[in-house]
Design a protein around this nucleic acid. Structure first.
Lengths: 152, 152
DNA sequence: TATTGTTATACTCTATAACTATA
DNA sequence: TATAGTTATAGAGTATAACAATA
């Protein structure tokens, strides 16, 4: 072509990944946002709490890959909605521990099956081998992209 | 566990995809945002113009998966920066045709090698077979997620 | 001195829709 | 009536940093 430069956006991996991730994200957000009035950050914090029902805020930030400010704000809203409470951490009085309330557990009991049904629908088209492979490929891409970000 | 409900956020596909896509996106944005002061939307519009150097705005919206408003704003900024111009479409006077300026082409000639080097670094860890497979898996996930979004 | 969590601020992005000019 | 593009506006999300309490 005239310009002597090339680029096909459609085949550019970062673009493809962004488009797919955004579409997948929207398909799940339809459940937690539209039907349960949760933001993505609130949903992530709740999801992090499913396993044990309690977690230090610091740990919630790590497992959700949100920063402390995003967690702090999401938790404020969740607490106002009566879905979680914050209590003091006796081991480190700077920290606070998040706990699901029974209302929070109730919401998750209704929400999780819907969200997991959507994930199952997405995964239906992939064989077991393909799922494992996808997982490994994503992991490698994550590591490489983090390496690029560190080197600036 | 006490709650009788389960969910491991780390293994939840929509979450994993979002985390990887965001990290990959940031690793590329370091180039176009930090070094060339472009937003993601501006970068996408420019990338769409690489192949032929000109394109109707409507087509740019389709190939970038941005909506017409996002394209309109990105193009306004790109035009202020002297990187593209809009001219009338003689075939349909509602439409306008985007054209790269020589400054735009010059910027792309400097930017593309850097961006493509990053993509190459990301892809280095994948074999040819794995790249093809990843592409197919992403395509299937995209279709399925669009299906979920349509059904609401 | 460093860390946890909160708050403030400014900035960007997003969603919706009204508006114009054409078709 | 419908479409291409622009503009307006309000709401969400993001980035940075200052701050209080504690380690």
């Amino acid at each position: 072509m005239a310009s002597g430069i090339r680029m096909n956006l459609q085949e550019f991996l970062p673009y493809r990944l962004a488009v797919v991730a955004e579409s997948v994200s929207r398909s799940v957000a339809q459940v937690y946002a539209t039907r349960f009035s949760l933001t993505r950050d609130e949903w992530r914090v709740l999801a992090a709490l499913v396993e044990s029902g309690r977690m230090p805020m610091k740990a919630a930030a790590l497992t959700t890959t949100l920063d402390k400010m995003q967690v702090s704000r999401a938790v404020s809203r969740l607490e106002s909605a009566g879905l979680v409470v914050r209590e003091e951490d006796p081991g480190d009085r700077r920290g606070r521990i998040l706990m699901l309330t029974s209302a929070g557990r109730g919401l998750l009991r209704r929400l999780l099956p819907m969200v997991e049904a959507r994930e199952a629908f997405l995964l239906e088209t992939l064989s077991e081998d393909e799922r494992r492979l996808l997982d490994g490929l994503l992991e490698r891409l994550l590591e490489r992209s983090q390496q690029l970000q560190r080197q600036g």
